[in-house]
Amino acid sequence: MKDLVEYMVRALVDNPNEVKVSEVEGEQSIIYEVRVAPEDMGKVIGKQGRIARSIRTIVKAACVKSGKKAMVEILE
């Protein structure tokens, strides 16, 4: 699933090489921490957080099968 997050974020940004995703796995949840170049922040978050919301919803759906709750956090 980490691949999926990376794949989606890389498609959106101008500096795909600076995209770093790390995975923090808990018992019931997985958190994906996304780091992008500062100038790409807006491209990943979007107006009113719209893009970030889409990414979160998609990743959540993809993790349904694993039975864990997925969260995506975007960090600077």
Binding site: M8, A11, L12, K43, G46, R50, I51, R53, S54, I55, T57, I58, K60, A61, V64, K65
Partner: peptide, 23 residues
Amino acid sequence: LLIGKRGETLEAIESFLKILLAK
């Protein structure tokens, strides 16, 4: 699974692809 609750995942996929197109 891709449709999601009340179509929310479908909507997210559509909106993501639209953003990608614009980009």
